[in-house]
């Protein structure tokens, strides 16, 4: 049976983006990719994926607009509070034994996860000896992460999450309010390097003790998941820690045996 036209167009668009801009979406999970491409076609008022492809090839600004659909800049501070609670209770005591710490937050999006981690480390007395590498492929998201400005609307949820995660102070200690936005305390990002890095095409850049990569692997197919987890394995030092999103697992992948779960429900693993 001939392939549906939309499937063909989707492959061609992804190939065009790869050839023109070196962003590699070829090994992403296609079902949700397709939904996002269709949304981009609609939002940019194109009649077809092919028309969008022409514009993407000729107009870098259109590519940047499409990238905002393809990369899902959706995040939240202390998302899944149990994850952060488990980090505090089960990982922090072991991280304390290191004189210095390298932490990698892969796919950090607009920075919510980075500030959450910095607050946690600060409260546990570890921030001053930590270095956080926060990486993503979306330059606009990275810029937002660097600025640390969030809509006031979201603060209630962030505060609730923070409290449920075992936060020791008041979430309002960490930001100043201005108009309809809050600005995160810049002390929190003194130990952070924001950088463009793709789990699909780049290699390891540092030895780390803890990697948090949440809700990024779900967007990859199994082969690309294996590549990414392989990078994590290579980057992590002896007995390093890996934290994933609450519905992500290593079970179906090539590196399942290389990690042991230490907080199973919270998806925190340790290199064997």
């Amino acid at each position: 049976m001939a392939e549906p036209v939309l499937e063909i167009e989707l492959k061609l668009l992804i190939e065009a983006i790869y050839l023109r801009y070196s962003y590699d979406f070829r090994d992403y999970a296609m079902a949700s990719m397709k939904r996002r491409v269709v949304q981009a076609v609609r939002a940019l008022e194109c009649h077809s994926v092919s028309e969008l492809q022409g514009r993407v090839l000729h107009e870098p600004d259109t590519f940047m607009a499409v990238l905002q659909y393809l990369t899902i800049p959706v995040s939240e501070m202390f998302r899944d509070p149990e994850y952060y609670r488990a980090l505090r209770e089960q990982v922090v005591p072991l991280l304390r034994t290191y004189p210095s710490l390298n932490i990698w937050i892969a796919g950090c999006s607009t920075g919510e996860e980075v500030y959450s981690m910095a607050i946690l480390l600060e409260e546990e007395g570890l921030l001053s000896r930590a270095h956080i590498y926060a990486t993503d492929i979306n330059p606009r998201s990275l810029e937002k992460a660097r600025q640390g400005v969030y809509a006031t609307d979201s603060v209630r949820l962030f505060t609730e999450n923070y409290q449920r995660s075992g936060g020791k102070h008041s979430f309002s200690d960490y930001y100043t309010a201005a108009y309809d936005a809050v600005l995160m305390d810049k002390r929190l990002r003194e130990r952070v390097t924001f950088a463009d890095h793709s789990l699909a095409t780049d290699s390891v850049f540092a030895e780390t003790q803890f990697i948090s990569c949440r809700n990024v692997l779900i967007y990859f197919n199994r082969g690309l998941q294996d590549r990414a987890v392989g990078l994590f394995h290579e980057s992590l030092g002896h007995r390093g820690f890996l934290g994933l999103g609450s519905k992500e697992s290593l079970d179906f992948g090539q590196h399942a045996g290389a990690f042991e779960p230490i907080a199973r429900a919270e998806r925190i693993f340790r290199k064997r």
Binding site: S32, I72, V74, N215, I218
Partner: peptide, 21 residues
């Protein structure tokens, strides 16, 4: 489907999840 995630079917007949809007 788990709470908080979209549940999708991939053409090779396995599931994938997403936190798209």
């Amino acid at each position: 489907a788990p709470p908080g995630y979209h549940l999708l079917v991939e053409t090779n007949r396995h599931f994938s999840l997403s936190i798209d809007p």
